[in-house]
Amino acid sequence: MTQASDPRGFGIYIHWPFCKAKCPYCDFNSHVRERIEEADWRDSYLKELAHYAALTPGRTVTSIFFGGGTPSLMDPKTAETVIDAVARHWRMANDVEITLEANPTSVEGAKLKGFRAAGINRVSLGIQALDDVDLKFLGRQHNHQEALAALDLAANTFDRFTFDLIYARPGQTPQLWEKELARALTFAADHISLYQLTIETGTVFEQAYARGDFVLPDEDMQAELFEMTQAMLGAAGLAAYEISNHARPGSESRHNLTYWRYGDYVGIGPGAHGRLTIDGRKLATRQHRAPERWLEMVATQGHATRQSDDVPVDARISELAMMGLRLAEGIPFTRFEAEAGRPFAECLDPARLRRLGEGGFLESRDGRLMATDAGRQRLDALLGELLG
């Protein structure tokens, strides 16, 4: 198999590191700036793309993803310039997926048609909640009416769109979540992402939670909310193809599937990560995290790569398991063998596999290793046991 025909795809990730405000639950590399010289950013993206294009000739790009931060704050012209550069450097798949993350404020929503004209063909809206009190708690800059208006606009502008919701919020009951999720489903088309609220290290919520400013639903309530979510989405024809992501068949996020299937992708912009297979070596790349320092490094050396390290075989097996077991489809044994250069039976500890299988958390079927529904619900614990 040639890299150009790799069924896992080949993605380009572009990180826009700026937001209007920092959400208290967010641990992403996002920053608030009063002034942004967008022309400098546009030029720097082009330089870093050129650097990585020289390392990966002959590949076919199956997806481009503008993430952040809040990339819908950028000028659509910047997105257009980046897309055109990708098309110059690599072949583009006929059905290339080009996604932009967007917030549903009225100002950003008004720009969606401009992004569509720039070449974006899929938008991902950060709705997060349809309750104004909870939106304020989550630090969002929109209200539920703006959210609904943005969903309407996305549906009328793009053939494909998705949106995120966060559940297991303080005080949320199954009855409240059922009502909110039912309303959200009236706007869902072919994809939706649903995340349980978690407390991430280094966030404002970490400090507030430690002070006792709010309480999350207990584990039993979280499990009930999760099971309700799976049931409602399944009944709506949006089965979970990944732990938190639901889609109609054929409408899965192609870019995220490249990650979860352990395919190759280029990461551009501050703090962006990449995974690249070059001459049989798997490289883990990471760009400098601080926006201003990233700009300086790109200006002086054409890229701001802070890390470009070989991923050893054992780490490749671990990464493949950590990503692929998130998927309902699991991981083909042949994928382990390709990464490890040895038979599947020698890739993972057979005693651990047996214990997890007997416990109902893992199964091997049709040449694939898969986490069961129970296993995906406890994936961190499963991976800890599987990989030691």
Rank of each mutant, 00 (worst) to 15 (best):
A4W: 07
D6S: 13
Y13L: 10
Y13T: 09
Y13M: 07
I14K: 03
R35T: 04
D40P: 00
Y45Q: 02
A54N: 02
L55Y: 06
T62K: 00
F65Q: 03
G67Q: 02
G68Y: 12
L73S: 06
T81E: 15
D84Y: 11
R88C: 15
D95F: 11
A102H: 14
T105A: 00
S106E: 15
G119D: 12
I120C: 05
L125M: 13
L125T: 07
I127M: 04
D132K: 14
L135E: 12
R140G: 13
H144I: 08
L151H: 00
T157H: 13
D159N: 04
P174Y: 15
R183A: 13
A188G: 09
Y195K: 02
Y195V: 09
T203E: 12
Q207G: 02
V215F: 11
D218G: 01
D220V: 07
M221C: 14
L225G: 02
E227C: 05
M228L: 15
M228E: 12
M228F: 09
Q230M: 05
M232Y: 12
S244E: 00
H246G: 09
H246A: 08
A247L: 12
R248D: 14
S251W: 08
R254V: 10
H255S: 09
T258R: 05
T258P: 02
G267N: 07
H273K: 02
G274F: 11
T277D: 09
T277V: 05
T277H: 15
L283V: 14
L283R: 10
H288C: 04
A290G: 01
H303L: 00
T305K: 03
Q307I: 06
D314Q: 14
P332L: 15
C347W: 01
R352F: 02
L356M: 07
L356F: 05
A371W: 03
G375H: 12
L383H: 04
G384L: 10
L386H: 04
L387N: 01
